[in-house]
Design a protein around this nucleic acid. Structure first.
Lengths: 191, 191
DNA sequence: TCTCATACGGTCCGAAACAGACGGTATGCG
DNA sequence: CGCATACCGTCTGTTTCGGACCGTATGAGA
């Protein structure tokens, strides 16, 4: 079938499949509260992408009330078929992590030890916070059956966050003490 | 200082800082063997980006032997300063995972259970393979002191891969049996 | 009543990023 | 001699991306 479809296309198709007919604004919010956590989409795309999908016959647009230009998009049979075909087909690509912190760590030898310490501290805090957010979501929706199936990705997110947290914590423990030794003399210069 | 710098810029600066003066081709190979594993860069950028950095005064180009248009780039003082400043400054952005598999999982209810099973199997295999590659690298370079500091990111990569592997494995265990039950009747239709 | 802030709802555009086709040159090897 | 395989790099047309910008409701407080 059409192979001009990007991940973004499937995000749109999938979200509409799960939530029923939606406007672009609905998509924007839905994505913001779910997929947006691990994959960033500029919202402009959620306005242009549905248009394309209409042209491809995968969505139908239903313009309501001329006054406010709001279009509700619903899945066509072709759209649903396309989505299901995608779900059924093998997934070749390996995941990509775009992690500025990892980049900095890679180049750490160019900088100072204290930069690594600071970086690690930041990351520990950031991942802890993220974990708190995820656990909160998990707790809030735990009983709702409708979202139960989507929760599964949350678990993956949590696993990844915990792994990262473990890494940065242990790095901090390894490098922290020596960094303290390195920094203290500046402050308590006496020695 | 200049804030028109993208992650790619820092990859170039950082790589040159670590390896010494390099041509674009050198960068391409170096990136391919390291950062490329977790962050994809189209190689064309490793030809255009250094140009920009020269214009910004962060790199110096040294054209050698007119015949073959090969340019070796070396870090200027400004370039090194910029890189170190970047390493020292806080890192606001949270990491992004672009994982098609996670996307598919998120929309799994639209598809069949067996799609999830297949997906999980694929992912288990893929992550295992990735882990093998990483461990191989780790073993090969374990003794070389020069790369020892870079190895640290490998550990992070491994942590992440292991976390993902754990997730997909346990998912497979949970959903696998019922999927088998779901599929068997088709084959052994009797019941 | 004014006016200020905040959510709602959306368009637009220039600048990067991106994929990948394309072009050529050494080098070796059967 | 012919072919394959690294090596080395350019170019081009799309997409993606951020984010500025533009309005309209709505309610809350001065």
């Amino acid at each position: 079938m059409a192979d001009r479809l990007s991940p973004t296309s499937y995000v749109v198709l999938g979200t509409i499949a799960l939530r029923g007919p939606s406007t672009s604004y609905d998509l924007k919010r839905a994505v913001g509260r779910s997929i947006g956590y691990f994959w960033h989409f500029p919202h402009a795309q959620l306005y242009s992408e549905p248009q394309r999908l209409v042209e491809l016959g995968l969505l139908e647009a239903e313009t309501e009330a001329e006054g406010r230009r709001r279009r509700t998009f619903r899945l066509t049979d072709a759209g649903l078929a396309e989505l299901r075909a995608w779900l059924a087909e093998p997934t070749p690509e390996h995941f990509q992590m775009r992690d500025i912190a990892e980049l900095k760590l890679f180049f750490n030898e160019v900088g100072e030890t204290r930069d690594v310490v600071r970086l690690a501290r930041e990351q520990v805090a950031a991942h802890r916070e993220r974990i708190a957010v995820y656990e909160d979501m998990q707790a809030r929706y735990a009983d709702l059956d409708a979202v139960a199936k989507r929760m599964i990705t949350l678990r993956l997110g949590l696993e990844m966050e915990h792994a990262a947290l473990r890494f940065w914590s242990s790095l901090l423990e390894e490098v922290g003490p020596s960094a303290v030794r390195q920094v203290i003399p500046d402050a308590a210069s006496g020695s």
